[in-house]
Simulated scan of single mutants.
Amino acid sequence: VMIANTSNMPVAAREASVYTGITIAEYFRDMGYDVALMADSTSRWAEAMREISSRLEEMPGEEGYPAYLSSRIAEFYERAGRVETLNGDDGSVTVIGAVSPPGGDISEPVSQGTLRIVKVFWGLDAGLARQRHFPAINWLNSYSLYPQSLDQWFRDNISQDFPEVRTQISGLLQIESELQEIVQLVGSDALPTDQQLTLEVARMIREFFLQQNGFHDVDAYCDIHLQYKMAKAILSFQDAAKSAMAGGAQLNDVVNIPSRSDLMRGRFETGYIDIIESMVETMTTEIAATVEDN
């Protein structure tokens, strides 16, 4: 179902469209469906509210928005959730709200009012989009407040060490961000080899784990079990590379092994989840062989 409103429609219609969408979502939720609602964008909805408030000569708040802006945003997101219907079925509404702040400034009232309510934030990054990195979600600005609630589910259904693996992956990306400041000043060659390896592992996370091709039949979707195996493959590469370099292997020899490239390209093939573990074993063996070569 699509509820469309354009800028040439009456301002009251633009303001009501969000409520129309959430009401239809609740209708299907009460029928026992799991509904996803995409509101694009709540910034335009807030602008319609600001225009109506101005015409009613209400007391303006920050940047001319009505003083009740935050409460209206909260009331909208509070209508999301899971319910038990009258006939005993389960239904849910998941709300994904897009905020389009002018100039990308998330300190403006609509962004701040939204961030105070929601528990998940995906920060889209124009720089990543220009680099053709999709989905262009900035992993440093984005966050979720649900991991503690979901950790036990991940342990029971995916793997006992799933939360720890997720934390390690996030930590490596954070370290890469800190090292990039040094790299921009003196270049990566000036870094110690262990930090150069960290940069390579982080690049592997970005290009192999985070980047997806939405137009590819296989890569457009990734099962949660495959996500875990891919993350473990990256950490396995890091551990094997550290051991090999401690034994005298050269960084270039370790990162340029053929099986690492095969592992990264394999995600485009059907049945990748069935062969990824054997590919990791081959990669580990090749990394160990670099010690003997040196």
Rank of each mutant, 00 (worst) to 15 (best):
81 G>N: 14
42 T>N: 10
68 Y>M: 13
62 E>M: 02
42 T>G: 02
73 I>Y: 09
74 A>Y: 01
38 M>F: 08
53 S>Y: 09
80 A>K: 04
61 G>D: 10
45 W>E: 06
61 G>K: 12
80 A>N: 11
67 A>D: 06
49 M>R: 01
35 V>F: 07
75 E>D: 14
59 M>P: 13
68 Y>K: 10
58 E>P: 13
43 S>L: 00
37 L>C: 04
54 S>P: 13
31 M>T: 14
73 I>E: 12
43 S>W: 01
75 E>Y: 07
47 E>N: 00
42 T>W: 05
55 R>M: 12
60 P>Y: 04
60 P>C: 05
70 S>V: 03
45 W>K: 11
52 I>P: 14
66 P>K: 01
70 S>G: 15
37 L>Y: 07
32 G>V: 09
59 M>D: 13
32 G>E: 03
42 T>C: 09
43 S>D: 06
69 L>Y: 11
70 S>Y: 06
54 S>W: 01
61 G>E: 04
44 R>F: 00
48 A>W: 02
79 R>F: 15
57 E>C: 01
42 T>S: 05
67 A>M: 08
43 S>Q: 10
63 E>M: 02
59 M>S: 09
40 D>P: 04
52 I>W: 13
33 Y>V: 13
58 E>S: 00
60 P>W: 02
47 E>I: 04
44 R>A: 14
65 Y>S: 01
39 A>D: 10
70 S>P: 14
78 E>T: 09
74 A>T: 11
43 S>P: 01
69 L>D: 15
65 Y>C: 01
39 A>P: 11
